[in-house]
Simulated scan of single mutants.
Amino acid sequence: MNAHRHAAEDAATEPRLLGPSEIRDLAQLLDVTPTKKLGQNFVHDANTVRRIVQTAGVQAGETVLEIGPGLGSLTLGLLESGASVIAVEIDKRLAAQLPHTAAIMQPGTVLTVVTDDAMRVTELPGAPERLVANLPYNVSVPVLLHLLEHFDSLQSGIVMVQAEVGYRLAAEPGSKVYGAPSVKAAWYGDWRTAGQVSRMVFWPVPNVDSVLVGFERADAPGTEAERVATFALVDAAFQQRRKMLRQSLGTALGGGSAQATTVLETAGVDPQARGEQLTVADFLRIARAV
C-alpha cells in the first residue's frame, strides 16, 4: 500500500510536459485555432522537446530566450532542465495562459513572459545566454537576425525551422542553397544543422519538413556601420544571383558595371564571380573598398 502511495506522490510532484490531449485541451480552453498566418504548429511530443533541450546544451541556472512559446510545450522542457526562461509571445491569450500552465506542470520554476512581437523587441527583462525556439516558419530568418543584432548576450542556440530555411542558414559558399540568409547569419557566428524533426510531432501536422539548426556566436568581423553596408551588398548580389558581381552590384556601388569592377578589384574579389561564391568576409572587403 505504501509503495502505491509513494508512486502516486512521485507522479504528482514529477515535472510534466504537454502531450497531444493536453495540447488540444489547452487550445480548446483558449479558443485557439492554429493559424498559417502566425506559422503556428504546436509540438505535442515530450521526447522531441527533451531532445531539443538536450541538443541545445541547456544548463540549470542559465537564462534561455524562447520565441513563440505557443501553448508551452518547449517552455516546459526548458523549465524542467532548471533554466530560467524569458518567453516572447505575440498572442495575448497564449501569453496570459503560459504562467498558469507552468505553475501547474512545472511548479517552482522561473518563467517571465513578454507579450510582444519578436521582430520589435529591443529590450528584455534579463540577459539570456541561449536561444531555444520553435520559430514561426514564415518569419524565422528575420526574427533570428533581429535577435542576434539586438541581443549580444545570446552566445548560442538551437532553433527549429522549416528544413529548406535551416539548410540555407547552415550552407557554405558555392552550395546550391547558399543565399543572403547564409551570409548574414555567418556575420554572427558558426551555424550547423543538428537533426531532422518528424512532421508527426506537430499539431496540426505541417506540410513541410523541419530541422534543428544550431549556432555559436563569434566576434563580429566588423563594426555596426560595416554590417549595414555589407548586408546591403549581400541583398543586391542575391537579388540577381545569376549575374556576375560587376553587374549585380552596379547600382549598389553607385556607378554601374565599370565602377563596380574597380571596387571589386580593389577588394581582391573577381568581378566575374557571383554572390553565391563569396563568404561574409569577401562581402565585408567590398564594403570597405567603397
Rank of each mutant, 00 (worst) to 15 (best):
T35D: 03
A258F: 12
V139I: 15
R16Y: 11
R120N: 15
I67Q: 01
S153T: 07
L169V: 12
A171Y: 06
L74I: 01
V269T: 08
S140G: 11
S156E: 00
Q239T: 13
A220K: 03
M119T: 07
T112D: 07
S175C: 12
A225F: 09
T115I: 02
V64L: 07
A225L: 13
S73R: 02
G157I: 04
L124P: 02
T63R: 08
F283W: 02
L131D: 00
D190C: 09
G77M: 11
V58F: 05
I104P: 06
T101R: 03
R120E: 15
A287W: 08
L169W: 05
P128W: 04
R199K: 13
L148V: 02
V43C: 07
A171P: 04
I86H: 00
Q54W: 10
G77V: 12
V290L: 13
V208I: 13
L147E: 04
A267S: 05
G57S: 02
A170P: 01
P15F: 12
D10C: 12
L212F: 13
A27R: 10
A287Y: 09
G255Y: 09
L79V: 07
P206K: 09
Q40V: 14
L249D: 03
V113M: 13
K243Y: 09
R24W: 05
A225H: 12
L71F: 11
Q28D: 09
E129G: 15
R5Y: 12
L30M: 02
H6C: 10
Q196N: 15
E172V: 13
P69D: 08
M119G: 03
I286G: 00
R5W: 13
H6D: 12
A260Q: 00
R199V: 08
A118V: 06
S210F: 08
V205K: 09
A8C: 08
V64C: 07
A46S: 13
H146L: 10
Q272D: 15
T13V: 15
N138F: 10
G82E: 05
R241D: 11
P142D: 14
P99V: 14
V143M: 15
A273F: 11
L17S: 09
I52E: 06
H4G: 02
V183Y: 00
A258M: 12
L79D: 04
R274Q: 06
A236Q: 07
G70Q: 05
S156M: 00
Q277C: 07
D91N: 08
V64F: 05
I104N: 11
A60P: 05
T115P: 00
H100M: 09
I90A: 12
V177F: 11
Q40I: 14
T48G: 08
V269E: 04
T230S: 05
A236Y: 05
A87E: 01
A252K: 06
Q272N: 15
V208T: 11
N2W: 13
L249M: 06
V88Y: 04
E216H: 14
L233R: 09
L38C: 12
S198F: 10
P15D: 10
G70Y: 06
G179K: 02
L26W: 04
R241E: 12
D117P: 02
L135R: 08
Y188H: 09
G195L: 06
A281I: 11
R242G: 08
K176L: 06
T122G: 01
